[in-house]
Design a binder for these strands. Structure first.
Lengths: 144, 144
DNA sequence: GTTATTTATATCGTTCACGATGCAAATATA
DNA sequence: TATATTTGCATCGTGAACGATATAAATAAC
């Protein structure tokens, strides 16, 4: 068998698995508040800057609007955000946090640290984070 | 705004994005042969060792059987694998490659290198691969 | 040997991802 | 100012992921 096809030599499988497992680590923490991980990402974006059009949120997360639109509709149904037509550009849908959406930040205050601690291990520590971040950022920049 | 909630400080978002983008890089190469990325992963497993029960494949990929079963059924419908009841243990479904499934390896011979080259950049090179692999493997081991 | 438990797989429902396509508003062009 | 193109968002269909649950076969306990 050819070495190049072995699972242990695949970068993508590692990224795919690490991503899934780390997302699973968020699950109990977010599920408690009725959130999914992609919805949490939308909240991160809106907490940084409220009242953004769908397109800006999608671009920030490197997702397509056909992924983000239904996701936002579910968040609207949960009362976490509102969606309203843009005033200057009627094509845009402006997404805003509700009070419930803003208040979630305080309720989730421990989430980043809890998940951060869960990954700390032999080769992944606060010291090696910058190196890992740099490599992942470069991969993303390269493929974008 | 709290630094800990900023998107740029999230490991999970990087893994999630890098995983999605790298999977997208496979898409045109695999789609040409009617394959999806998770189906390609199943092929990697079966090319290493043919005739495995569903559970062994799922464990190897760290997936649940409720993800793998429908995936295998689609591959069976495509004539890539066969699924047959185990002889010693009638609960098991043994998955075997068909000739079409085996022949796909030759047809996909350039895929690993093509995708591998696509990620090469400033901080990610054949020299830094071992370090990146080690960190991702440790994260996976830690969360598993 | 009968009953209980575990194991292997499958089914169901919900939520992403994402290619393809549609539509209306805004902008560019003739 | 008509017409063409672009842009922003939405709809649709398919294939994962995954929690919850079901079913049948194998194994353990009684």
């Amino acid at each position: 068998m050819e070495e190049k096809f072995k699972l242990k030599n695949q970068l993508c499988f590692r990224l795919y698995t690490a991503s899934r497992l780390l997302t699973q680590a968020y699950h109990p923490l977010l599920g408690e508040h009725g959130l999914t991980y992609p919805q949490y990402l939308v909240l991160l974006v809106l907490w940084e800057k409220d009242a953004q059009p769908v397109n800006d949120i999608a671009k920030r997360l490197l997702l397509e609007t056909n992924t983000v639109t239904p996701l936002l509709k579910r968040m609207e149904a949960e009362g976490i955000v509102t969606r309203s037509k843009g005033k200057e550009d009627a094509r845009q849908m402006i997404v805003k946090l509700t009070k419930k959406g803003r208040d979630l930040q305080k309720k989730l205050t421990d989430v980043p640290e809890t998940v951060g601690n869960a990954v700390i291990c032999e080769s992944v520590t606060p010291e090696t984070f910058p190196s890992l971040f740099e490599m992942l950022d470069d991969i993303i920049k390269q493929l974008k």
